[in-house]
Design a protein around this nucleic acid. Structure first.
Lengths: 129, 129
DNA sequence: TAAACATATGAACAATCATTCATATGAAAG
DNA sequence: CTTTCATATGAATGATTGTTCATATGTTTA
């Protein structure tokens, strides 16, 4: 295989990898590419929003944003099974969005920091536009 | 069936529906319950966050938050198939998070309003705590 | 009009997820 | 120590979702 045919193959690969329409934006794309957050950051970010991307969990977080409460309060407030609430609280705890302490028979949950509430509020503001 | 036994049954149902631990929080729960956003609001809110709850979509939105660009730019910038990008753009468009216009062969997408960017930023701030 | 390019879309598939049911743990009261 | 209450958890299931592959649509250029 000659050098020439090799180069031609590379050219072809380049052509199929991405299109040529870019024209106007190539420079911008390069710049953005250099300042792109890393894969992990995007992953964490989407994981965070994934936690907020469920009706039951959002309700729980909203309730807790009004003040700490125990599991049975949440069950009473929302229309969800105790089991479902418990499962979701576990996820929220793992994601460090809520914390809890034990008090007698009860487990008392609360929002772990108020960034969470801020994000919720921004979301609510957005959907009422 | 006498009135008395009827009342007893109701009492029992009440007991099994929710626990009695509430004690301290009952008043608060009532108050919160009255000011709770409606089902639909929670639904919309979780739908919004669901859109941000995927790595590919977050990347796309981040890229677009730097400026409008066409599909092939996004494909080049991120490491995702053209088909996957197109599918996700459709979802983002349906959710009104992005808008697009056609220019020749290209479809040029952009963030539909900067609430989106604000929410993204809040999220990024949160995960770097 | 045909070829090339940019984007969109339908169907299929694997993976993830939220809920339910049954049951386990843990704590307090009797 | 047994019962009752509050919460947690494992397994099963149905539903949703993101990607891929193949192909269609729409636009420009030759």
């Amino acid at each position: 295989m000659s050098d020439k045919s090799n180069m031609e193959v590379e050219k072809e690969e380049l052509k199929t990898e991405h299109s040529e329409c870019g024209g106007r934006y190539v420079e911008m794309v390069k710049k953005i590419n250099d300042s792109m957050p890393c894969e992990e950051e995007f992953y964490d970010l989407s994981e965070l929003f994934k936690m907020l991307g469920d009706s039951t969990r959002v309700k729980i977080l909203y309730a807790l944003s009004q003040g700490e409460m125990c599991v049975c309060d949440i069950v009473e407030l929302l229309d969800v099974t105790q089991s479902a609430v418990s499962h979701q609280l576990r996820l929220l705890k793992q994601a460090r969005l809520v914390k809890y302490r034990r008090s007698g028979k009860s487990a008392i949950y609360s929002i772990s920091d108020d960034h969470v509430y801020t994000i919720l509020s921004m979301g609510m503001e957005h959907i009422s536009e």
